[in-house]
């Protein structure tokens, strides 16, 4: 879900995805960088992402990933589940108000 969310705004290459995750999580998700690439590969195999090669401004080839329609739908479904789950946990963790009779 983290990687799908990072690609929601626009297609990006691996390094930019990692930067986006780090930036949007305020540094909380400072993942080992190499672990993101197998995840991208798995999401592409599951047809949640598509990818193609592009030339970088300095001429290096880089793989750019984009959400597919299936990926956008999956992200929306996961987001709904997460909101429900986090609301439930928040309700549980909120200190109950003591009732005085």
């Amino acid at each position: 879900m983290i990687v799908l969310a990072a690609l929601e705004a626009a297609p990006a290459h691996g390094y930019a995805i990692i930067e986006e995750i780090r930036r949007r999580s305020g540094g909380a998700f400072d993942l080992p960088e190499g672990t993101v690439y197998p995840v991208l590969h798995r999401l592409e195999t599951s047809q949640l992402l598509s990818s193609h090669w592009e030339k970088s401004p300095i001429g290096r080839r880089r793989r750019v990933y984009a959400l597919t329609k299936h990926g956008s739908a999956s992200l929306a479904a996961r987001r709904t589940s997460w909101v429900q789950f986090s609301s439930a946990i928040e309700a549980l963790l909120t200190e109950p108000k003591l009732c005085r009779t």
């Binding site: 080992p32 960088e33 190499g34 672990t35 197998p38 995840v39 590969h41």
Partner: peptide
């Protein structure tokens, strides 16, 4: 920062 090759390759291998 990228991590050990063996760990990364193992994750690719599963897929």
């Amino acid at each position: 920062l990228f991590g050990p090759t063996k760990i990364i390759a193992a994750q690719f291998a599963a897929t």
